[in-house]
Amino acid sequence: MIPAPLEHLMKQLSRLPGLGPRSARRAALHLMVSPSAMGNLAHAMEEVARQVTTCTTCGNVDLTDPCNICTDAKRDGSLLCVVEGVSDLWAMERSGAFNGRYHVLGGLLSALEGVGPDDLRLGQLLARVEGGVVSEVILALSASVEGQTTGHFIAEKLKPHGVKVSMLAKGMPMGADVDYMDEGTLNLALTGRMAV
């Protein structure tokens, strides 16, 4: 009933993260009824495939290798922020709170997903630290068991190199009420409390 090329498009779209079969069908039908949108999308994808590259130093995506962040002389090279993926790097950049450099791990250790240390960019991280410029590594990984255990693993690996290793604080989000906090979050917030 559905033409084969359209079905193929829907199948490819449904494989994208955050899209299921229903969303893929909706998107494919939308593209069908709007040929200009389809052309623009195809062109944009082609441009990205042709121009955008992965930085071999930090794992960020940019038009150049090394990327703009790695070559920016105004950034503090002694601070290295380790993030799980490029979207986390973008989130950190949006905050405008960090002026150091980044290292994109490319995932988290997960035995159940079959992701081991060799699947992450850990070797490159150790090589950057061995370079001698980095004095502090900030682990900005997700506040989950996988994120935290990956953080501990990296901290162990970095121990012999004598650099300071820190993790992002965990606790209450902005605008949250104490009585709505679950006990785990409150516990983390209490553990990481600050003097005022």
Binding site: V145, Q148, D182, E183, G184, N187, L188
Partner: peptide, 18 residues
Amino acid sequence: KDICGLVFYSPARLHMLR
């Protein structure tokens, strides 16, 4: 009961949970 949050800063215990 949030067990994970209670042991979040203890590497060994967190690894045990996992």
